[in-house]
Amino acid sequence: MTEQKQPIFTLENGSVRYGSGQPEAVSGVSVRLYRGEILGLVGESGCGKSTTARAMLGLVPLSGGRLTLHGTPVSVHERRLRASVQAIFQNPAASFNPKRSLLDSVAEPLRVHGQGTSKERRARALAELDRVGVTEQMAVRRPNEVSGGQCQRAAIARATILRPEVLVCDEPVSALDVSIQAQILELLAELRTEQGLAMLFISHDLGVVASLCDRTAVMYAGRVVEQGAAPDIANRPRHPYSVALQDAVPSLDLTADPAPRIRTRTGTDDVDGRLLPGCRFAELCPSVTSACTAAPPALDELSPRHEVACYHPFEPAVR
């Protein structure tokens, strides 16, 4: 990937708090999305991935930080943001009005933004649906009358019909069968190439992220703990949590060493890392020291474009 000067869409030092007196669900997270690039955001359930996505879409308010579009601060209520940044969600059927056909739902963004006549909107929606592999026969059906894969294809058509610059994909394949997942991932990769889309791809599946994404950011307890090129994160993770996350992925290589590289501490995994004054992984990390519990580590560039928030980063074995 060539070096790019300015991201299309950013979340800068974003924080989200659900209710007074509650710990921040997301703390100081920065996300930069570049044209033609897919950023994978990974982590366990409850780490703040979806909250980050919803904050970028304006579905939950930021308690701190800001959004920028082409370098200019932007409000979540601005029409230009809603046209430029679109979303694909985890449950395709739930993201549609169950009483309307897929065709009507895909055409709806055109109506909202005042584009074309009713006949023109229908024609554009049919063309967009056909482009993602949904026939007219399927398009006139309601969400509960088609498969999950067809429904997610329609959701992609609805998200791209306005020709946005950014797609925020929140676990878009986790509810689908494996064979259908591969088709949807291939479709997203094609759209990225054809339209030069910038994408945020949220997943808990490290294998999917490594195969689809250009960069990876790893989240734990509301913070980004490591980020860099997807191959680097997949092959040479440096944060202890990233290593443990990788070791938890089943391997088909029978010659691989099954022993985990990081043996996390036991008996303290019920502690909410968001409540800790220092590193949020400190209660589970085997390398914890007094520095780890005193103050949270900042993201530090250990190698070009590979940042890790850790006082004692993991040193991969030389192969």
Rank of each mutant, 00 (worst) to 15 (best):
V225F: 11
P231G: 05
D205L: 14
E190V: 10
R215D: 12
V209M: 14
A230N: 01
V208I: 13
A217C: 10
L188G: 15
P231A: 08
E194N: 11
L197W: 04
L197Y: 07
D214R: 03
D214K: 02
Y220K: 02
H204K: 05
G228A: 07
A221M: 07
A229Q: 09
V218G: 00
V225R: 03
S203Y: 06
V225Q: 03
P231W: 06
L197N: 10
A229E: 09
M199Y: 07
G196I: 06
A198T: 09
L212D: 06
P237E: 06
L200A: 08
E190L: 11
C213P: 12
L191W: 00
A234K: 02
V208L: 14
T193S: 10
P231Y: 04
D232M: 11
E186L: 15
L185F: 14
M219Q: 01
A189E: 13
L206S: 09
D214H: 13
Q195E: 09
G222Q: 02
E194Y: 04
E226H: 04
V208P: 09
R192W: 00
S203D: 10
L212E: 06
V225P: 04
T216F: 07
T216D: 04
V224P: 00
T193C: 02
D232T: 13
G207A: 05
R238E: 15
R236F: 12
L206G: 06
I202R: 08
R192M: 02
L188A: 12
